[in-house]
Amino acid sequence: MATLLGQLLFPPPPSAIVAAMSAISLVSLANAGASELRGRHLQYSKFWDSQPNKVGIKISSRAGMFALYAPAAIAGLVSFGFPAVAASPRGWLLSLALSVHFLKRVFEVLFVHQYSGAMILDSVIPISLSYFLSTVTAIYAQYLTQGLPEPEVDLKYAGITLFLLGISGNFYHHLILSKLRNKDDKGYKIPKGGLFGLVICPHYLFEIIGFVGISCISQTLYVLSFTLGTVLYLMGRSYVTRRWYLSKFPNIPKNVKALIPFVF
């Protein structure tokens, strides 16, 4: 296993910060996935929004979601101003992929998503900070690979393909979700179209594909750790989402999976 990772990844840089962030990202995201299974949801989900006794200053979901993603998008764009990023093809591609990922999220927040609830202000800051720090750390970890030997297996072109597939599929399924209800409709409906006939959360599946693509572009331990953590979180999230839909809509076919067609 160590030999395989050595062929696929850059050598770990001598940075205690990046090493610590790699472990923190993996553990915290995996724990978030486990928390979803235990019924403790992130404070911008439809599951949490339905829970009583929510306290704190409420802001509109659109403003809250914009605040989640905008700082990370800005960090990606600002990184192009540093010559060290532009000098490295992988660094440039990584910054571009992260910028596109978060700019797409900002675009969806402003022009695609429909909202039925609110967010608590106290929950926005830590989540926004985590996205921002993850983006900055990924770019910094890539910068530290300069001068190190390239991995034996070059995955960046496969990564570009996977990233484009993931971000396109994710956007397409978000469009389907956005058209389920009109502006004044606050209820939930069964999604149809795309891969929704096979899985409850195809948008999560394509988000994972996109992050796998980013990992292949980067080929650093930090981005791999973040991607693995994201996979574990979205597995927990999709499982709970499927269970929620089955409880609300008993007519959903039981063979529809949560995340991976015919498998999970």
Rank of each mutant, 00 (worst) to 15 (best):
A84Y: 11
S15I: 01
R40G: 15
S247R: 13
C201G: 14
R237K: 13
I260Q: 05
A87L: 14
I252N: 00
F171N: 02
S238G: 11
G64Y: 02
A118Y: 06
I217K: 08
V223Y: 00
G229E: 00
L133K: 05
D154N: 14
I200A: 15
D184F: 06
L103V: 10
S247M: 15
F206Q: 01
P13A: 08
R242Y: 04
L133M: 14
F264V: 05
K183M: 12
P149S: 06
F206C: 02
P12W: 08
E150M: 13
V212D: 06
K257S: 12
W48N: 05
A258S: 14
P83E: 00
L121D: 12
T135D: 14
P11Q: 02
L29G: 07
H101T: 10
Q114P: 10
L246K: 08
L77G: 08
L9R: 06
P11L: 01
F249P: 01
P149V: 03
Y245H: 01
A141P: 02
P126G: 04
T230F: 14
I127W: 10
C201V: 12
S60C: 04
Y204F: 10
N31G: 05
G147H: 11
E36Y: 07
W244I: 01
G33H: 07
G81K: 14
L129I: 03
L246V: 05
Q142P: 03
I139F: 07
G187V: 06
V240R: 11
S238D: 04
I200W: 06
Q142M: 03
P12K: 09
F111Y: 12
M235N: 12
D49S: 12
R90L: 12
T145W: 00
I260T: 06
P191F: 03
R242N: 07
T145Q: 11
F211A: 04
T3R: 08
N251G: 09
V112A: 04
M119R: 01
L37E: 02
L26R: 14
V223Q: 02
L42P: 13
A72D: 01
K156P: 08
L9T: 02
A2D: 13
L148Y: 04
G213M: 00
A258W: 15
G236W: 01
A84S: 15
R181E: 03
I217F: 09
G166I: 00
I59H: 09
S35A: 14
Q146W: 07
Y157W: 15
Y172E: 07
I139V: 14
F66T: 13
G210L: 03
E207T: 11
S178T: 05
V27H: 13
I176D: 11
S130P: 04
A32P: 15
I209Y: 07
